[in-house]
Simulated assay, not measured.
Amino acid sequence: MNSLFRKDLSDFKPYEAEVNNCQVILNANESFINIEKQLEEEIINVIKDIKINRYPDPTGEKLRKVYGYYSGADKEKIMIGNGSDELISIVCNTFVNSGDKIVKLNPDFSMYKIYGVLHGAEVLEYDLNEDFTLDIDDFINFVNNEKPKVVFVSVPNNPTGGIVKKADILKLITSVNSIVVIDEAYFEFYGNTVIDEIDNYDNLIILRTASKIGLAALRLGFLITNSALLMEIYKVKPPYNVNSITQEIGALIYENKQVIEDNISRILREKSSLQISLLSLSERINFKIYPSGTNFILIEIEEAEELYEYLKDEGVSVRFFGKGRLENCIRITVGNSDENRILLEAINKFLGDK
């Protein structure tokens, strides 16, 4: 049987999502706000009308129209996906042949590399600066030397929280002969976008997700690009990739733009408070807090693994990386005021033992 397995995947390690039994879950960049409780009656009503004996709308016409209004993009330039993860896979499947190169930053979202490898690509990683900033001119030179089919860049960056200025993004797009995928998963927290540029460049693709605004369980993502690229991408999209329940609830949520904006404002207020408290704690022991345009905060501390285990024992789950550029880093998702208080009390206790 082993002779039937792909030899190029013999050493491949799949992405393993952590099973979490902690009281306070701050490891996955989810929203702490239960948006379905805010719109519970409306959600129940739309679910009741779904004909579950019928296939879902293959293109998500209603959802694309609503998201187009929400995002400012033409609905004809939008594709829906089963999370942005599926859309990353679809992009690779569209443009990448076995042996082709793709480029991602290091560190950046791990799924770019995973799907690249699964599609037979040679995945090249460009190291961010020591402070996790990007030297755009050197990066452009790297891309032009390697000549990849696709370049992936998350803005803001996951897991660092860092940003790339719009001018630098446009410089990248115009300077390379590659498909450039700008992943705006954390757009709602950052506020800046290149979605208004999709018709100005023939190699630009934008990804968005519903997971960070409180819909992580739905698995819903969006791809926005120009008509020519979208026509190619539709060639490999599965016909019924987003189920009817996700489409209807997604459309309902995005129709309630004010609810989303109010929730984002609340998360950003909690983030500001958490940053101030972490900064105060960092004065007791030397750890670094990186600037963040997202709903999470990355800290670097020499005792990262020890702190991670301590927090887990205290019932608080955060993201510990433990290797590579992020060896001594912990990523903390912004929680509600009670969750952040429990986290800070646990960190304070940990520092008290030092």
Rank of each mutant, 00 (worst) to 15 (best):
S3E: 13
L4I: 15
D8V: 01
L9T: 08
S10D: 08
P14W: 06
Y15A: 09
E16I: 15
E18I: 15
V19H: 11
C22H: 10
I25R: 15
I25D: 11
A28Y: 11
N29A: 14
I33R: 06
I33E: 01
E36D: 15
Q38L: 15
I43R: 04
K48P: 03
K51Q: 12
I52A: 05
N53L: 12
R54L: 13
D57C: 05
D57W: 05
G60S: 06
E61P: 00
R64G: 05
R64A: 05
Y70P: 00
S71L: 11
G72Y: 13
A73W: 05
D74H: 13
D74C: 12
M79G: 05
G81Q: 08
G81N: 05
G83C: 03
S89I: 00
I90G: 00
V91Y: 01
N93L: 11
T94S: 14
N97E: 15
N97F: 10
G99D: 09
V103G: 00
V103W: 00
V103H: 00
N106H: 09
N106I: 12
S110D: 14
M111H: 14
K113Q: 10
V117N: 07
G120C: 05
E122T: 13
E122A: 07
L124M: 10
L124E: 15
E125R: 09
D131F: 01
D131A: 08
T133K: 04
L134H: 06
I136M: 11
N141V: 09
N144Y: 08
E146S: 12
V151G: 06
V151D: 01
V155L: 02
N157C: 09
N157L: 05
P159M: 06
K165T: 06
K165N: 10
D168I: 03
K171Y: 05
T174R: 14
S175E: 06
V176S: 02
S178L: 05
V180P: 02
V181H: 03
D183T: 09
N200A: 06
Y201G: 01
Y201I: 03
I205E: 03
R208A: 04
S211E: 12
L215E: 07
L215T: 08
A217Y: 12
G221M: 07
F222C: 02
I224G: 01
L230P: 01
M231L: 14
M231G: 13
E232F: 06
K235C: 08
V236G: 03
N241W: 04
N241M: 11
I245C: 02
T246Y: 00
Q247T: 03
E248G: 01
A251W: 04
K257E: 15
K257L: 11
Q258H: 11
Q258S: 14
V259P: 06
E261C: 10
E261R: 06
R269Q: 14
R269A: 13
S272A: 14
S273L: 15
I276T: 14
L279F: 14
L281W: 07
L281E: 09
I285P: 00
N286M: 08
F287C: 04
T294L: 01
F296C: 03
F296I: 10
E300G: 10
A304K: 00
E306K: 14
L307G: 04
L307K: 02
L311P: 01
V316D: 00
S317I: 08
R319Q: 11
F320N: 02
N328D: 13
I332S: 04
G335E: 07
N340K: 07
I342D: 08
I342P: 07
I342W: 04
L343F: 04
K349D: 13
K349T: 10
F350Y: 12
L351W: 08
G352D: 09
